[in-house]
Each structure stands twice: as structure tokens, then as C-alpha cells.
Simulated assay, not measured.
Amino acid sequence: MTVSRRLLSTLTLTLALAASSVQAESLRLGTASLGGAFYPMGQAIANLVNEHAGNDISMVPIVTGGSVANPNLLGRGDVELALTNNNLAKLALAGEGPYMAAGPIEMGAVAALHPSVLHMMVLADSDIHSFKDLKGKRVAVGPAGGGTLGFLNYLFPLNDMELDDITPSFVSYSDGFSQLTDGTVDAAMALSGYPAGAVMQAAAGAKLRFVSFAPGDLQTAIDKNPAYMKVTIPADVYGTQGDGELIGVYNMLIAPTSLEADTVERITAAIFEHLEEFQAENASARQIDPAMSERLAIPLHEGAKRYFERASHQ
């Protein structure tokens, strides 16, 4: 073997060894507790990324405290991407509300996901009709780290109330609605896409009714913070006597600005170029409106921006 051929052989072997040693970039996706809507959503996103983003990127969904906790986890580097709500992302970017201690979290939006709706439910024969009627009542408010409390902390002052005006039960959504049907609490709440599993399970054995807002109060709440929106849940979803006119918010996938733009662009493409596959795996994904990704409360991550700019010219 000549010197040049030996050198070529050595170089080929070196490159082959280098290629074989390259490992996929492993990304942790912060979701929420098991049993909620975020974990299966995160699982479906991870499946799309693992299948379509390239062999050098892998993703795994991580159980977390939920939408309130996730921006802090992202800021600390405990996860590389996370799910949260539009209103919480806005607060995290500004370092306000539950993120004052951490300070502003440098992050961008990757994708708008399904809307979450604040389900406020009572038994059909309850004397609770409006949000203000919750005063003095026992209310299942969801887990302490979940997004429901963020909504309540916003709505209480608008109704001259505070958390101390109710007796809160900090339990999972499924446990909260079980407490509602067995009479342990007077009302139950869940911030979730719809249909929500916990509500469906309760509605299978009991007649439920939506708690409404006093006339004009819902619009006032939305006018004061455009991150929120009105969502109508048709009566036939849970078999209620009437539709629910509720407050909701878009969920989103977020990433730190330090995450490479190329990586984020490929993740965004894996989601939106395979949206039908996403929707077949996850029912909440059927409510995703791709156009909403460019109308969220925080700016797009550079990688997501590149994807949507490219997609708009195709």
C-alpha cells in the first residue's frame, strides 16, 4: 500500500469513527403532571421531532409542575423547551408576577398550540351561578403549580375577591372533579383544552353546569389583558344545559433564545409540516391554528421566525 493510500485509508477510518461517535442532541421538553393535557401534547411533539427533525436531534417529554413552573425551568436550564400559556410567557419574558425572583427569562415562542380554557364547573342544582358566587365556597383549584391559579390571581381582583375568600383544594384536576361529584367541594376548576378528561369523567356520572361571569365581566377581563380570549364550549361537549362562555388562553411551545436557531427551525418544521400526523395522535392538536404562532404575546424565537418566513413563501 502506498503512503497516499495509507493516508487515505487512515483519513476514511478517522472520519467514520468521528461520524459514529456523533450523538443526537438530546432535548428535554417540560410538560406538566401526568393526567393533564400538556403531557400527551408534549409526547406527541417529541414523537414528531424524533421522527422528522433529523437523526442528530432527539426529544423526550419531562413531567413538571406545569405551565407556571416551566418558564423557570427553562430559565435555569433544567429543560431545553417547555409548554406554557400565552399570559405566563408574557410575564416570564418581563420578569413579572411569579417570575419576579428569577428576573426576565430570555426566551422566544416556537409555536402556538391548542387553547386552554378555564373550566369552572358545579353540579347542575348548585346555587353558584357566577364567579362572584364562589365567595365563601369550597373550590378545587387544581395543583399548586398549575396554570389555574394564574387565572384566579388575575380574576380575583377584578371581582373584588382574593384567594382567602374561598376554601381552596389543591388537587389534580381528576381528583378535584371527583371531589365535586361526591360533594367534598362546591365547585371545581381545570385549565385545559376541551374536552377535558377530568370533566368528561365527572359528567359521565353527574349533571354539571358551567359557572358564568356577570354581564360584561368577561369582556372586561379580556380588554385588560389581550393575552386572554373568550372561548365558547358547546353544551354537547359535556352534556350541560347551555354553552359555556369562558375565559381561555393559547398555549405555546417556548425555547430559550440561546438554543440554536437551526435546531428550533427544524423542530418547528417537524410540527407544522406534519400537522395532520400530529392531529391524528393528539385530539387537542386539532384546535391548533398555525397562523396564531405569529400573533402571540411574545416574539418568535429566531429559528421559528425563519421557518414561518420560509413557509409563507412556499
Rank of each mutant, 00 (worst) to 15 (best):
L208T: 13
F308K: 06
T220C: 00
A46H: 09
N85P: 01
A270T: 00
A16F: 11
Q314S: 14
V60L: 08
F131S: 07
L275F: 02
H114N: 12
E265Q: 13
D127Y: 10
A311N: 04
V185F: 08
L300A: 04
T181E: 08
G197K: 15
T148H: 05
L17G: 06
L11W: 12
I288E: 03
I267T: 09
G147W: 02
G75N: 13
A261D: 14
L74V: 10
L7K: 14
T167Y: 06
G150S: 09
S172W: 12
M252W: 06
A19M: 11
A206E: 14
Y173H: 12
F156A: 02
N87K: 02
M121W: 06
R266Q: 04
L152T: 08
M120Q: 08
T268E: 04
D125S: 09
P299M: 06
V171M: 01
A101L: 10
V264Q: 07
I247P: 05
F177N: 07
A18P: 01
E277H: 14
A202K: 07
E302R: 10
L81K: 02
L34C: 02
A24F: 05
A196P: 03
R76C: 05
V68I: 14
A204V: 00
Y39N: 01
V141A: 08
M1W: 01
M121H: 04
L134R: 00
M189V: 11
L48D: 05
E80T: 13
S130V: 11
H114D: 07
L34A: 13
A69P: 00
T167N: 05
N159R: 09
P143G: 05
M59G: 09
L8R: 14
Y194V: 15
P98E: 04
G303E: 04
M189T: 15
H52Q: 11
A269Y: 04
A206F: 08
L246K: 01
E106S: 09
T31G: 06
I298V: 15
I166R: 00
V264H: 11
N50S: 08
P168C: 13
P143T: 15
G42V: 11
A94K: 10
A16K: 03
L191G: 10
A19Q: 12
Q219G: 10
I128F: 06
L48Y: 09
S33T: 11
P256C: 02
G42E: 03
S293M: 02
D262T: 14
I128M: 07
M100V: 15
T10G: 00
A69K: 13
A255G: 14
K230H: 03
N282F: 10
R286Y: 11
Q314E: 13
A140P: 01
N251C: 09
R5T: 11
L149Q: 15
A261K: 13
V264I: 14
I128E: 04
F170M: 02
N87F: 13
S33W: 14
Q201A: 13
F272Y: 15
N87W: 02
D164P: 01
N47S: 13
